[in-house]
Design a protein around this nucleic acid. Structure first.
Lengths: 149, 149
DNA sequence: GATAATTAAATGTATGTACATATATTTGTC
DNA sequence: GACAAATATATGTACATACATTTAATTATC
């Protein structure tokens, strides 16, 4: 559906405004698609993203700083998202021996097992970007990179 | 900067995953650019969006339902965002005479005046999409529409 | 080596998101 | 006209975002 119809706005000032609104709207749309999927597994999107970063580090630990550096949303509060994951026993947290200011965070066996199940389910799940051809996906990335220049 | 460097990820599975991550990341980036701008005026992005919808209706009132219909984020809680705007006296709210379930919401003179100042400031402010050519902006909108098909 | 500056993480507060539930009003049906 | 269903909004709760402040540990400077 065209963006004008999605938000019932008759016209945009120009192609720039239209692209901008479309970008925000589509990203929200994709996030909602995904968060419904993750909910089945008792996770939120940011919780999943942090777990994935931790798996990438495993068996090495990550610090809160490293998580923030790699998160899509730099300003979110990694500390409290880790709290939730720790409550679910998907990660472990202990003071870093070499630098007692820092905290070593590791994904637990239960966390690895959950991500494994998510990987399997994700292959069955089609998210929106699949509607594009590979060339179009590449084209999209280039346009987005240019926006942030 | 390329998306790989932004989030310090070495490689993506394919162009689809890369485009997807890039889309979420760029939309967040744009939102942060804007929210910094709105903050100078004591508004948040959703508050601004609701005010703009109300100005579009002015002098006719809008109901909460109409606001939800036109908002980019359908699931957000329009009622409570209107609460904040009412506290700041930027909108008025009163029971609709013809349907006492509904609430008539109108932008106040102070609200109109604030939006006027924002319009002026916005013309001086360059947001990211301006980095694209008009053709590229159009191309981007088409790709985004295709994602949501 | 004491003290200031910096760094790493946690905490506090206001706002927003997501979704379920509650309350009040109107509409439809017998 | 009583009562069920639908509609419009508000409220409750858990989680996340945004940003300021606090606490603790380390590093730098005199």
């Amino acid at each position: 559906m065209k963006i004008e119809d999605e938000i019932k706005q008759v016209a945009f000032r120009d192609d720039y405004q239209k692209a901008h609104v479309n970008l925000i709207f589509t990203a929200n749309w994709l996030q909602q698609q995904q968060s419904g999927f993750f909910k089945q597994f008792g996770l939120t999107l940011p919780q999943f993203n942090i777990l994935r970063i931790l798996r990438g580090q495993h068996p090495k630990p990550a610090t809160v700083n490293l998580l923030i550096e790699r998160m899509l949303d730099k300003t979110s509060n990694a500390s409290r998202i880790v709290d939730k994951l720790e409550t679910k026993e998907l990660v472990t947290r202990c003071v870093c021996p070499s630098n007692r200011r820092a905290v070593d965070i590791r994904i637990s066996d239960a966390g690895l097992e959950l991500l494994g199940r998510l990987d399997a389910a994700m292959n069955d799940q089609q998210f929106g970007v699949q509607n594009l051809t590979s060339t179009e996906a590449d084209q999209l990335s280039r346009l987005l990179d240019k926006i942030r220049d």
